[in-house]
Design a protein around this nucleic acid. Sequence first.
DNA 1: TCCGATACGATCATTTTCGAACATTGGAGG
DNA 2: CCTCCAATGTTCGAAAATGATCGTATCGGA
Lengths: 370, 370
Amino acid sequence: MTEEAPLPSERRARLIARVRETGSARVSDLSRVLGVTPVTVRRDLALLVADGTLEKVHGGARIPARAAGMSTGATTGIGMPAVTPADDAGQLTIGMVVPSIDYYWPEVIRGVRDAAHGTARLILRGGSYDVDQVRRQVAALVGDDGGPGVDGLLVAPPVDGPDAAELGEWLAGLNLPVVLMERRLAAGPYREPLESVATDHALGSGTAARHLAERGHQRVGLVTSRTSPTSAAVRRGFLAVTDELGLDVILDLETVPLSDAGWADEAAAVLDRCAETGVTALLVHSDKEAISLVERAQERGVRVPANLAVVAYDDEVAGLADPPLTAVRPPKATIGAGAMELLARRLEVGDDRPMHRVELSPRLVIRSST
Amino acid sequence: MTEEAPLPSERRARLIARVRETGSARVSDLSRVLGVTPVTVRRDLALLVADGTLEKVHGGARIPARAAGMSTGATTGIGMPAVTPADDAGQLTIGMVVPSIDYYWPEVIRGVRDAAHGTARLILRGGSYDVDQVRRQVAALVGDDGGPGVDGLLVAPPVDGPDAAELGEWLAGLNLPVVLMERRLAAGPYREPLESVATDHALGSGTAARHLAERGHQRVGLVTSRTSPTSAAVRRGFLAVTDELGLDVILDLETVPLSDAGWADEAAAVLDRCAETGVTALLVHSDKEAISLVERAQERGVRVPANLAVVAYDDEVAGLADPPLTAVRPPKATIGAGAMELLARRLEVGDDRPMHRVELSPRLVIRSST
DNA sequence: TCCGATACGATCATTTTCGAACATTGGAGG
DNA sequence: CCTCCAATGTTCGAAAATGATCGTATCGGA
């Protein structure tokens, strides 16, 4: 009936879409496409420039340099040369706290760096699984006492035990965007979850179990680390699948880590039990322990994989063993990148965005130990 | 009976529907379509703005940015504009299949549109909960037989029952990026999950339970829909929290939907049981059923919320009831936007990216029914 | 360096929309 | 029958959005 006169706000939205499509657009084109005079286009641009959505150049407009990298997942960086990535003014500072800086987490950190892409400054603290220590590290970052005063946090805090729960409440109450990495937490009277990006470890260990079943193993064993927060999920997934497939889990042991003095004895005990009970395949949490176990087995004359198949959970160094170990590889870099993206989005949008929890699938890397 | 004077609440419902259709609408059009003067439209808008359902802009109204979950706050209400951008070349085509196009899903679709913001062409199929029908719709989209041949799929397939499992296997085997919306599926011999973006409905119903406990209710009831795929999660979350908090779940009923002829009887039965057993609060899945239940309660002289508190699960129309209903609102638009982003990323990066499953937190919108 | 073409910003006119005050209508209840 | 009240319509001055005009600034090519 009547010709549709679009709402001003809708027209501006289309204008933005149009500019985003190619990174920039000319006023004359916009005027034609949107069906209004150039004057109006310019006025719209003036508004959008004022709130920082766009940037004006002679003849048209473009996406501001700062938002270019992060605003959307589907960055269509066509045609536009990368403009001034270094824009110190108004740059965000992100604090990051991880439990270890020499195992597992370096790759996560790299993922965060890649995703930050120079648009945010990262401050890293780490190396402790202790609740109070972590709290002090975070406190130093948020800067109640004149610290750097970060704009957001990426944290992998301890989550087990009452102290950890209290730490979680404190983190949630910081009034600062927080994204957890490889952890999940709910806080507050309504048990609202914090944002998180985590590997589905249960899926990974389950996949390992399916792999072993496929290779014909019936009597299998599980060796997990007493100190690792992910062991519980690894164990759960493994047992769920062995149960589903009817495999016999003869062995289900928690050990001290390789670095502990008691490891030698516990490893020997594991191998003794395997020999006694006829276990033909093991899933070993943490590939460092898996490598050590394989070495010790070989010293005893047990051939891997002929007499004992081994799947390592984690894939830091599993590929360097002899033979190279089949391993479940958590997507560490993607964890970091995903967490950084969630945080960037949160900082951009504010509280009016529902909490996101992202779960990633690990991958089974099949090598020669199975 | 005559079209002369529809009820105000019905007019407002139509108004919302009209706005949701394209994301925005102008006062003058609404005035013409609804057959009332612009003043009345503005007054309706004022009401809907007050309870957060809509947002006013000069010349009309639109869905609030909050609900849209957009990065810039400027929602791109690109509703298939008459002036289509000319550059069809190289543009991606996305197929989308949803079970309903008049309830729940319009907002999800809008979220997808916003996230695509013109960079992808969307083809929509929908309106069926039937497994074979859905398969035919998807088959038509992927175009084995000369269909449009989409580059990726956004689907909300049925997931219950053996037929549905087979459909899942088929979807996973399509060799085409697929992202599920509001569904989860694992397929293949290794039970690998497909990518998905879904609301944590169990969290939402749990939050509702906590809210009722906080208001002092002890004897509570649950009414879910027999036909909805989300009812199971709603029920699980509700029961988990009532159990944790020691609430007595006196009533736990599944009903037919409002559209079914049997609804009147079942609603009456629910109210009878409430009266008999002294239930003081209900969680009702789907706000349409909740509204109907509240109306029938009031006809019996039961005051809401004085004698019976009601929380609706879903927030399509809950705000329009009298009294406006407290409701759990799933982040529908963000579901769509997140799914579109995952798909875009997948198309961009390819298979070297771990599967992502995203879970979003719903929000409890507290109104006057509790 | 100069020149034509194009883009820009400011001002003013016109149309559309907004919001508030006031009038009208149609029930519900005393 | 009357009053009260809520919903809707009417009127009108103010504000916003858009377009037209004109002098100035900027760009690209000779």
